[in-house]
Amino acid sequence: MSLVSIRDVRKSFGSNEVLKGVSLDIAKGDVVAIIGRSGSGKSTLLRCINGLETYQSGSIVADGIEVAGANTNLRELRRHVGMVFQQFNLFPHLTAAENVMLAPTVVNKVSKAEARATAAEVLAKVGLSEKMDAYPSELSGGQQQRVAIARSLAMRPKVLLCDEITSALDPELVNEVLRVVEQLAREGMTLILVTHEMRFARDVGTKLVFMHHGKVHEEGVPKEVFAAPRTPELQQFVGQVS
C-alpha cells in the first residue's frame, strides 16, 4: 500500500488551473524527485500534500489520512508529514536547539529536557552539534537549512516534503544540504523533493516525476528516464538544465 496516494488532483488559483489532474503513488522508502519548469505546478502539488494548499477535486491520502476530508485533522496529518522550505523559515528569535524543540514541546507536550535530547540527536545528524545555541542570524544558509531539516526530523515524520531546499543557497553550500538528504534517503526516510538538482535526482532518487503544464508528463526510474526521455518536452528540459 502506498504511503502517499494522489488521485486526479485539480487545483486552480482563480481562473488559472495549475494542477490539471495529477495522480501519483509514493511507497514507503521512496525518494521521489519532482522536476519541471517553474509554473509547472510542482511546488503547489507538494504544498497540497500537507494541506498548506487546498485543491478543488481529486484526493490525496497521506499516511491513511484524506488531506481535504471534511473532518480531517490537519495537525494529525502534519505530525507525520514534515516539510522543509526554500527559504529555511527558521524562527529568528529562537536558537537552533529552540527551533528544533518548539514543536515537540508545544505539539507533543514533551518535557524540555527530553526535547533538548532529541534536538541534540537530530542536530548531530545534520552535523551541527556545536551550533545548538546559535541563533539563525549567526548561521550560514546551508547551516540554517540543515537546522530546518533537523527541526522537521524532531517530529519523527514518516514523509518529508522538500520544496526546492537548495535553491536559495550559494552554490558552495548546496552539497552540505544534499549530503544530509542523501543520508536520510539511505536510512529509509520517504522523501518527496521538488528540485533543480538533476544529478542528485538521478543518483539518489528512486523515482523521477517530470511535471509539465500541471500534469505528470513522464515518470519512472531516474537513471532510465534521464538516459532516454520519452517525451520531447522532457528531452528539451533535460537538454536545457544539464
Binding site: F85, L102, A103, V106
Partner: peptide
C-alpha cells in the same frame, strides 16, 4: 513562511501566533 513552517510542524494557528508570530 514562518507561519507556514509552524503549521507544517503540526502547530495550531493559535500556537503559531503565540510562539512564533507575537514575539517577532
Amino acid at each position: 513562511g514562518h507561519i507556514e513552517a509552524g503549521l507544517s510542524l503540526a502547530m495550531s494557528k493559535w500556537e503559531v501566533l503565540r510562539h512564533i508570530v507575537l514575539n517577532q
